[in-house]
Design a binder for these strands. Structure first.
Lengths: 280, 280
DNA sequence: TGCTTTTTGGAATAAATTTTCCGCGATTGG
DNA sequence: CCAATCGCGGAAAATTTATTCCAAAAAGCA
């Protein structure tokens, strides 16, 4: 006879299910177990991190009571139950990592068919966008917006993979009535274009791994000229991160070794429309 | 001599301070420690919950390296450092849903706020991607794939809003080892570039409302030269639709008068990866 | 190249945490 | 009021987890 006889049903796998079960069975529990139940419902976060020792002390019960509590709900022990609380904190919304990895499993082995691939990319990109909202550093976004607001002229650079983002930014910022120049390398005049920057301008560099050297060089030149740098990148460890006035870090989905740009473009959209509405 | 000699300064007490320190000293660390640093910055949540064993496995280093890493930043051990990550999750960031509403309060509800806009764009784009899977005409996609498969050279054109998609296609197709040329208008030589097309080539035109005239003219020229046309557009009534060999129709989200490109780019991804896998 | 210093990974150690076991005490039903 | 049952807490055992130590490898330097 492993646990409580009334609970033959399996242990809940999500925090919401578990909470519901706890609430349901609350009155059928013993006094101490009710005490634990209340504490669990009221302090889910402490459960997620705490050890049996501290939780039991905080809840005013004996350590073994916690184990009994977990057993009463079908778990093998406290640790297994705790994992539910942790996972909830870990990926709150319709989990991101799970969704991405599910993409691979659900759609099975790649037959190379473009249909399959489209499904995979679509759901991966969609998941990333959902996550973007929760992960982005909004103060950085607002900082960038402020800088752009005051800029006399905006210079934008991104090469290879990020060229798309850079060119979209130019397009969108011009629609927001900002003066924007894309530093492309047409005619090999990269540095000449970059040389035009003045201290009341702003530069936006879009630089993802492996951090193209051209962009770094131009950004460095901008910094030397006293031009504030807005960096749109994929990591805090991006080479220019230390010197940027505002660094916006976005995580992009990767499927089949190809990284998307959905999130970056989304940020670009938000930024430029925001500026558009602030035009007087 | 307890730890690294260069770090006499005290261990950071908040996650932001710690992250900053890690970013700062990243390049002065040893190879393995850099590896850890990157993992820490990229996966803070996993650090908060994981045990030394699983984290070190995920980060691809030896358990003792994690302890050394913590020591290098002035902590007595990994656990002490981990507590920083936990505390951040504990109160700094309440939870995604809470965070979003908190962000709203902090930055206001007004539609001009870039935060609010980001939310709107992200959810609109995400929703569009989810719909894409159900709405796309897959036979058109496969037709396009077949054409590209056999093409000697691929010419791609898109201007203004669709320039982004066109340039992404070029980038991606080249990565799939296809010969691809973007018909831009550098030097005003649009028609000269287009004049290169031969009957065994293929042209991709990306043309959304209001259907730029330049693209139509070039596509017409391609058709006249017997070049099959793949059309990526937003409506069956697109001017070139009637004459295209394959027409892929995607619907894009619109927020605040700005149309996205997520779906188009997603199609472009699928198409090019599909081609890449079929290279022999 | 040969030597010194630093870094790394393996194994052993130490610490902590969780779980089990068992007897005591309270509660309930006869 | 007594007996059976259930719940509880104390303490030890078992397991997991973090840390230290040391030798080998790598990197830097002369």
């Amino acid at each position: 006879m492993p646990t409580s006889p009334s609970n033959i049903s399996k242990a809940p796998k999500t925090l919401n299910d578990l909470k519901a079960r706890i609430a349901d069975e609350h009155q059928s529990l013993s006094k101490r177990l009710q005490q634990v139940a209340r504490y669990f419902l009221d302090n889910p976060k402490d459960i997620a991190f705490g050890t049996v020792a501290v939780i039991s002390k905080d809840a005013g019960v004996h350590p073994s009571t916690l184990v009994r509590f977990a057993n009463a709900f079908g778990y093998s022990g406290f640790s297994e139950m705790q994992r539910i609380f942790q996972q909830h904190l870990l990926h709150e919304s319709p989990s991101y990592k799970d969704r991405i990895s599910m993409v691979r499993e659900t759609f099975g082995e790649d037959d190379g068919s473009s249909v399959r691939l489209l499904e995979q990319f679509a759901s991966a990109n969609s998941a990333t966008l959902d996550h973007l909202v929760g992960e982005l550093d909004y103060s950085a976004l607002e900082k960038a917006e402020g800088l752009l607001q005051q800029a006399n002229h905006i210079f934008i650079m991104g090469v290879r993979r990020t060229f798309v983002v850079a060119s979209y930014l130019v397009y969108a910022l011009r629609h927001a009535d900002r003066r924007a120049t894309l530093i492309d390398s047409v005619g090999g005049m990269t540095m000449e274009q970059a040389g035009n920057m003045r201290h009341d301008d702003v530069m936006i560099a879009v630089s993802f791994h492996p951090y193209a050297e051209e962009t770094q060089r131009v950004a460095q030149q901008a910094l030397d000229a006293g031009v504030p740098l807005i960096l749109l990148t994929d990591s805090e460890l991006s080479p220019l991160a230390a010197r940027a006035s505002a660094k916006i870090i976005v995580r992009e989905a990767e499927v089949h070794g190809i990284r998307s740009l959905s999130s970056s473009l989304c940020v670009a959209q938000a930024l430029s429309v925001s500026l558009a509405t602030k035009n007087k």
